[in-house]
Amino acid sequence: MHELHPLIDFGIFPIFNFITGVGFIFSYFLLNHNFKNIIDSKVKKDDIIIYLGLSFLIGIGISNIINWFIFPELSGKPYLFRILYAGYTFYFGLIGFLLSISIFLKLFNYDIAVYMNEIVPSITLFHGIGRIGCLLGGCCYGDICNVNLFLMEIERFPTREFSIIFLFTLTIIFQKYIKERRLIIYLILYPLFRFLIEFKRGDDRGHLFTDIFSPSQEISLLILFIVIMFMVLYHIKRKYLI
């Protein structure tokens, strides 16, 4: 843990969890606002909160369980201990969330493409607010850099602050300018940003496939590869097969 400031101490209050919950509520209200663009019954639009909530739970569950294997010091410990100390990884949560919400939308006859397009700004807003939780909770901090900027001494690289600015900017851009293919654009821009910012992270990043890159960088590359392959195949299909 690396605290925001010696005077800001929340003690045992679960500030990260609290901010995450607030983020979930704000994201839901943004989603409700964006659902005005969709022509569908009010009942269906209201009911989606249940599927979002369940997908959110599945996402954080998957992210917690995968962390048991990323951090070897947790192996062999009792399950409750692992659940409490494994923490969460955004990427595994995102993948679990996207897969489960797609399944729910398909099961309950929603138009997946249309609804997913409107869900993306809520994901970036939720993530941005979640990063404020990281900032206040003292996790996800940057590497030691010791830079003097405008009479301010910056001890650690502001990874959380950059993430917050990036994610809120992305939310505004999605809300104001990009109205279509948001998921693909998000799945290109965020992994690119994450891949770069991970070089400046100072916390224990764990180990997934290699020792060269952190788990998040490896997943960023994997997502970029899948998205680019998808786009190439889509382009080929449109150009030659239709």
Partner: peptide
């Protein structure tokens, strides 16, 4: 018949978030 209020949702989310450390404390 359907409800119209967001209060149960907000209370449920915030309550469950605080109940998680509550569960650890209880243990």
């Amino acid at each position: 018949k359907r409800g119209t209020s967001n209060v149960p949702m907000i209370m449920g989310i915030i309550g469950s978030i605080l109940q998680l450390p509550g569960a650890i404390c209880a243990g």
